[in-house]
Simulated scan of single mutants.
Amino acid sequence: MRIVVAMDKFKGTVTAFEACAAVARGLHRARPDIEVVELPMADGGDGTLDVLLHHGYDQYLIPLLGAHGVPRSARVARQGRTTLIEVAEICGLGATEPTAEMAEHADSTGVGEAIVDALDVGASEIEVALGGSATSDGGAGMLRGLGARFLDAQGRPLAAGGSALTGLARIDWSGLDPRLTTIRLVGLRDVDSPVLGPVGAARRFGPQKGADSEAVDRLETGLAQFASVVAHMPPPTGFVAPDTPGSGAAGGLGWAILLLGGSLTSGGDRIAGALGLDEMIASSDAVITGEGRLDEQTLMGKSPAVVIYAARRHARPVAAVAGQNRLGEDPSRFGLAEVLSLECLASGTARNPALTVTTLERAGAMIAEGMVRRISASASMMAVPSPTKGQ
């Protein structure tokens, strides 16, 4: 039996590589005869750069500004004339516990600086992996790093961060780097959220970045003001509505990419194509996927959804291993024959890498010892709707 283990990260605990390796060890421990193919996954969030570096991209260190204006070095990946920039690498949350003040002032200027660096080395295509940001500034910082000017009513430059956008009165686009019109700019999104509203950049994701209710309100007001000014003073490429699916990715960075004439695509699909996921699954007997949490948001194009859909196309049974399972008691509704939840197998795996690894190994062994048979028997239950796709 050949099993593809296509796991994403368990955020804050283990990487996609570590998760795949742990499940594979469990499979082999219980059934040494199983052939295991490890395929660490990503969907445009943090970890995307590491996955592509494992598949032919080269790593470069460049100087830029972090989320809070501190100069630092960050990694980018290059292959030929394509550059991959990971937002989480430049202005991500990192290991620091975020505060409301940090959430309001976090800035994406470093992403713009990384794009300028890519232009300087002759990139013809720039991909920006949008997940895992600490920012909620609508990409204003990125645009500033590319030459746009954000001004208040007195013509003074605005401070950095999403809350400062409440004072935005005018945008001067004249200084935008002209080379942006000569390249293909693509945002790899892992969510379909818009910029504004209850499921938008500030209200849905602001609390994850440290924002309390008052900070969320200020960030939402700032983003709304940004949208209003852009509607009256659009960039040279024209106005793009802030309710475009995926525009709220990375605190609104998705929208800024669209305003530059770029496009958005599913990060999960892009990475799956680069890794040859379809071909791997077609030549397998079963598939195991998973990440830290499985819930309704997972089905909006995150890695497990991409894997599930690929397995369905090839009529291969698929099981999932997650830190937390919030998909309910009937996994077949989502194309899954079985779901193992680490929180049900062991207490305290969250933020405990060693325990997470050993529990993932245990989950792999459980699949090898008995669940493979049930997965195979349930292949006929795979007819489920495909994961939601954005544009």
Rank of each mutant, 00 (worst) to 15 (best):
A16V: 07
F17Y: 13
A22E: 08
R25Y: 12
R29Y: 12
E35I: 13
V37A: 15
M41C: 08
L52K: 03
H55E: 10
H55N: 10
Y60Q: 10
G69Q: 00
V70P: 04
G80W: 13
T96W: 09
T96P: 02
E97Q: 07
A100L: 04
E101L: 10
A103V: 05
T109P: 00
V111E: 00
I115C: 04
I126V: 15
A134W: 00
T135R: 00
T135Y: 00
S136E: 10
S136H: 06
G138F: 02
L158R: 04
A160E: 09
G161T: 01
A164P: 02
A169F: 10
W173L: 09
T181D: 14
D190C: 07
R203A: 11
F205D: 03
A211T: 06
D217C: 06
S228H: 15
V229S: 14
S247L: 12
A249Y: 02
R270L: 03
A272G: 06
G273F: 08
A274F: 09
A274Y: 04
T289D: 08
G290E: 02
E291W: 03
D295V: 06
D295K: 08
K302L: 06
K302N: 06
P304C: 10
A319R: 02
F334E: 01
A337T: 12
C344I: 08
N352V: 12
A354E: 15
V357F: 11
G364V: 00
T388Q: 14
